[in-house]
Design a protein around this nucleic acid. Structure first.
Lengths: 246, 246
DNA sequence: CGTTTAGTTGACCGTGCTCAAGGGGCGTGG
DNA sequence: CCACGCCCCTTGAGCACGGTCAACTAAACG
């Protein structure tokens, strides 16, 4: 794949899909056209999808961060995953009757929205595209399994370190990492809800990570000072992200 | 779908897929034939798949219980999901390079194994089959998300109650529930690893569920005495299982 | 300049873990 | 037939990780 001079918001999507399956020039053009059809923008803290909505549209995240989350009746919130630039939200989701969770923005977000017929037309253009989309879903299950073990069997420090390692790897693929640093726009409340911790304990855990020199977090910018050490502390193994082409 | 007189191990699979998409007679016949191609049997405590294996075969669980699990380096185990009769393990998984978790049997298990070409032929017979298989994957992500919130934001009693409610609903679909009772072949160690608890604390939690009259667990048989109350205690909402046809 | 939001700190407490020991059922071998 | 070992379950005691409540600071914003 060659992104060429025709750079735009959709490049993150192309990089993600091309990481799953080698895309032909024709496929790249088809994806570009589909993504450009309807581009939307939202502020931070908005819901793109609410639990219980009918599942209809496919969304491509072009810039900014979003998250999937669920709430319990009594207000407890769990962020169950991050949606980063290049991610495609729920290919083929219209096969189910309704959504089982919500999607909220963590920052200002630019995304593309495809209605079902549009999406189906895109899928039909090329078998590689369909396969790359299926890979996106398979990787998503895999990530979700890793989150399950993260919350079930890792302690606070390991959990937070693991979340950070995952973000680093996923952002790398789409070129959003600068050396060992990347923009980290989340609040501590968000990170706590992703780690299954209280904000108070998350704060202390972050301080532990900082004071041990593993990370530097300042002005919404996170630097991993020693990725090896952080990985080891988190028992992080990037295989579950399935970022490599088969 | 009419299962007819041609009853066999594959009926659980047919019931599951038919719950996702209405299957034609031809589709039913094609699935039956595919499943019967290669049927295998294993004892309890065996691994069908090991983390790191190449992903090649698609498996249909016909009878018995299995689980997906991951281990941390230091031996901590987390069961990240159950595989019950009628479940299909990872349709299209061969699109990825390797498996990210292991699959182990909890009981004696009968399953069918399809090589990639066989599986692809089955998928090609009918668009409904492909859609039903995709639904299986989409439901799996959804279940995995619910497990994430279960471990991240529910306390011990709620977690265990939730796992039990899920098993009840999933077993119902394939006709493995008798009134409010079902065979419950897991050990407490398994259930602890699924709930993210220690065996000691799981044991005490189970006793709490028993003494409060919510469940009866005896001789590997579990009875839910008051499903409404158990649901409420778990904050269980079956939507995430996507058991209903669209 | 007042209000809101994010981050930080202290004190206390409770859920759930660890370690350790013991009981019951069952299969195996002497 | 009994002895032994193994697996699964159960119970007790002590402790620690992480939660809760509350107060305070700093930055951002109108």
């Amino acid at each position: 794949m060659n992104l060429g001079v025709d750079a735009g918001y959709e490049n993150a999507v192309l990089r993600r899909l091309d990481a799953a399956r080698r895309l032909s020039e024709a496929s790249v053009a088809a994806i570009r056209a589909a993504v450009r059809e309807k581009i939307l923008k939202t502020g931070p803290g908005e819901d793109l999808v609410c639990e219980g909505d009918r599942a209809e549209k496919i969304r491509f995240l072009l810039s900014g961060w979003a998250c999937r989350y669920k709430m319990l009746e009594d207000g407890r919130r769990q962020i169950v995953g991050f949606i980063l630039p290049g991610n495609i939200c729920d290919p083929f989701i219209y096969l189910l009757s309704m959504t089982d969770h919500s999607i909220g923005t963590l920052t200002q977000v630019v995304y593309s929205e495809l209605e079902r017929p549009h999406f189906e037309r895109l899928v039909a253009t090329d078998a590689t595209i369909a396969e790359a989309l299926y890979c996106e879903t398979l990787a998503e299950v895999s990530i979700q399994r890793e989150w399950t073990i993260n919350l079930g069997r890792r302690d606070a420090l390991e959990r937070v370190a693991h979340v950070i390692c995952e973000l680093f790897e996923r952002l790398s693929v789409v070129g959003l990492v600068d050396g060992n640093s990347f923009a980290f726009p989340m609040t501590q409340t968000d990170l706590a809800d992703a780690s299954g911790l209280s904000t108070v304990h998350l704060n202390r855990t972050l301080q532990e990570l900082r004071s041990s020199g593993l990370i530097t977090l300042r002005d919404r910018n996170l630097t991993i000072n020693d990725f090896q050490a952080l990985s080891a502390a988190a028992m992080f193994n990037p295989n579950y992200l399935h970022l490599n082409r088969k």
